[in-house]
């Protein structure tokens, strides 16, 4: 497939000699307008890639923070159509920052795969992370996405052994997302030494950039991951800022403030 914004971003960061700061926020959390303000502000706060969650009633791989974010978004009337509208509006002011939609398959299946890829591509999405579509189900969405020029980013986990890894890598593109602990999002922090060992094993099998996520909450943790990975993903900690805010202004301000701190942590590590 042809080069995407994700490919270009990782190439530029390699040149720059630092890891990517990948942020996750939920579309429509706490409402569509506020989440648009947050997403618009993230590149300025240092985000290199933005993952936007598509809310789902039954997020079985997510911890409490992202579960709550999804429920808030659904309560605010977020639908997949509105999520795509949000991306389209964001793209009007930013044509460079890669956008990755993350979530579960059923809302996409209900929307229609072909229609989703067409509308998503037109809205300006670059990649997809669909938690409940392992390589066994590649024909559902992964292969059509590649055909449409959208990266399908797969999760690899501590349970992905040598035997399994080739299946995970096979149709992955853009980057590989290493889930640093066996668990749900927002769980315990990973041990950087363990992560480094796993990354070494994965790097022996692929040249693709590897971003590491799950359990990263502080600038220090983000910096430690930036030392060893091509990107650090933060989701639950940002989403909690939205959840704890007492007004929409505070939600925007406090989420972006944390993003800036995390970004500074990642930017403190140079790899040249």
């Amino acid at each position: 497939m042809s080069e995407t914004r994700i490919d270009r971003r990782f190439a530029a960061l390699k040149e720059e000699g630092r890891a990517a700061f990948v942020t996750f926020v939920m579309a429509g959390d706490p409402d569509l307008e506020t989440s648009l303000d947050i997403i618009k502000g993230l590149p300025g706060a240092g985000a290199d890639i933005i993952e936007v969650g598509m809310p789902f009633t039954d997020p079985m791989a997510d911890g409490p923070a992202i579960q709550q974010a999804g429920l808030r978004a659904l309560a605010a009337g977020t639908t997949l159509t509105r999520t795509l509208d949000l991306i389209r509006t964001f793209r009007e002011g930013d044509n460079d920052t890669p956008i990755v939609l993350m979530g579960y398959y059923n809302p996409i299946y209900a929307y229609g795969v072909e229609r989703f890829l067409k509308d998503g591509k037109a809205a300006g999405i670059d990649g997809l992370i669909i938690v409940d579509l392992p390589s066994e189900e590649d024909e559902e969405l992964c292969l059509p996405a590649l055909e449409a020029g959208v990266n399908f980013i797969r999760l690899t986990t501590p349970t992905t052994d040598e035997k399994r890894l080739p299946a995970v890598l096979k149709n992955t593109s853009g980057f590989l997302y290493y889930v640093s602990i066996a668990g749900t999002t927002g769980a315990a922090a990973p041990e950087p030494a363990d992560v480094a060992k796993s990354l070494e094993r994965i790097r022996a099998a692929t040249d693709m950039p590897i971003a590491v996520g799950f359990g990263i909450r502080t600038p220090e943790q983000a910096a430690a991951i930036a030392e060893i990975a091509d990107g650090a993903v933060v989701g639950s900690a940002l989403v909690e800022r939205v959840g704890n805010a007492s007004s929409r202004q505070e939600a925007v301000r406090s989420t972006l403030a944390l993003a800036s701190d995390l970004s500074a942590g990642i930017r403190s590590v140079t790899k040249k």
């Binding site: 079985m60 791989a61 398959y105 938690v131 409940d132 579509l133 392992p134 390589s135 066994e136 189900e137 797969r154 999760l155 690899t156 986990t157 501590p158 349970t159 992905t160 052994d161 035997k163 399994r164 995970v168 889930v179 066996a182």
Partner: peptide, 22 residues
């Protein structure tokens, strides 16, 4: 052999669980 009954069934789970399910 792929775990389907016609259109239905399959293995729609997080990657963490796949090795276990296999």
């Amino acid at each position: 052999e792929t775990g389907h009954f016609g259109l239905f069934g399959g293995q729609f789970v997080a990657e963490t669980l796949m090795p276990l399910i296999l």
